[in-house]
Nucleic acid binder design. Structure first.
Lengths: 192, 192
DNA sequence: TGATTTTCTTAACTTAAGTGAACGTTTCGA
DNA sequence: TCGAAACGTTCACTTAAGTTAAGAAAATCA
């Protein structure tokens, strides 16, 4: 299972046996059941999550209503705001499917950076890439309508359509479930 | 002028004279006039920008229409997607006000990292913070209506209201200028 | 300064999302 | 396996943004 984490890292740098052992020794791999809440409002978690298998989802609760903001599938990771801010979380993280994840915290990271400085270099590059990607996604969201966002999802992450309940998808697109139903009906009619 | 860059960095690490000289020698400071385009569609720029004074704005042109995605004021920086991707830019960057900026590229950065490794450590931390902040902003955008986004702007970045033309603000909020006018009129009426 | 362009607002009409409700289907736990 | 809860769709109505157009105000520059 940890092999898939090694595979991910080795897209960037080839790991020595010593480095692999160091990662293994951290004992960061966890198996979690569908529906598990990995983070709840009010918690001051220090844990960053990397998804090895399965699917997790982040959301807020605004006026008693879940607002899904992102899905994280294989080889994607999330470090919730509370990890850096130290403030109680407003974010929830929950398991959409049974999943294998790795869980780390800033303490582990600095330990690894101390032992193997090139890991910090890798993390700088990765977080710059993530930042850039995140900004692009934000820009795409801002410049699209719900319908365009749905079509974009259909094209680029169609796996989500089968893995995620409609009402979570709707929320992710920024609309209500009823509106997603209608939107889909409208598109089918247009196509004819 | 470069002092304000030093001030920014020294919020995190105190610079030695040697480090300051290294930065000064890079000759990265530029003065730019209002209206100047710092990046246009199609360009493969390698330049990241940090704003020391003034205001710049990023936008796309979609169906012949400008879509403003972000404003960068004092002590904020932007590394456009093309810097990392190497692909021709779809993003525009333009100067909203006369500005003083610093312009760097990946080559300069690796030179500085080589001479002073702790700069890479600082950059990792900064980009992790930026990523976290960017994700929070994205989440706030996703979970808000245009009206809520306007009120949020009023509360948190009210300086922009005076520094930026309405139609650019409207675009930034994800609506048309006419809708922003109407929204404002609606709010005034509500207040009474 | 005067002319021209850009910007901002208002208005009437259109389009699409929000709301509340109903109803059939699926899921899940006792 | 039965019953309750959650889920997805449809409908009628409401609300707010998009569109088109017009006119007033402000900024720009020759």
């Amino acid at each position: 299972m940890q092999q898939s984490l090694f595979d991910f890292i080795e897209q960037y740098i080839i790991l020595t046996e010593e480095e692999k052992k160091c990662i293994t020794d951290l004992d960061i791999f966890r198996s979690v059941k569908k529906g598990t809440l990995l983070l709840s409002e009010g918690q001051c978690s220090r844990s960053s999550i990397f998804v090895l298998k399965g699917l997790i989802r982040t959301f807020y609760i605004v006026d008693g209503e879940e607002k899904t903001t992102e899905f994280y599938a294989e080889m994607e990771g999330i470090s919730p705001p509370c990890v850096l801010s130290g403030l109680p979380s407003e974010l929830y993280i929950s398991c959409v499917e049974d999943a294998m994840i790795s869980v780390s915290d800033p303490g582990m990271e600095s330990e690894v950076f101390r032992k193997f400085p090139r890991f910090e270099s890798l993390c700088r590059i990765l977080s710059e890439q993530l930042l850039s990607k995140n900004q692009c996604n934000f820009d795409t969201y801002k410049t699209s309508s719900p319908e365009q966002r749905y079509l974009h999802l259909l094209k680029n992450r169609s796996d989500l359509l089968n893995r995620v309940p409609q009402h979570q998808l709707a929320s992710y697109l920024g609309i209500k479930p009823q509106s997603l139903s209608r939107l889909r009906a409208r598109l089918v009619k247009k196509k004819k």
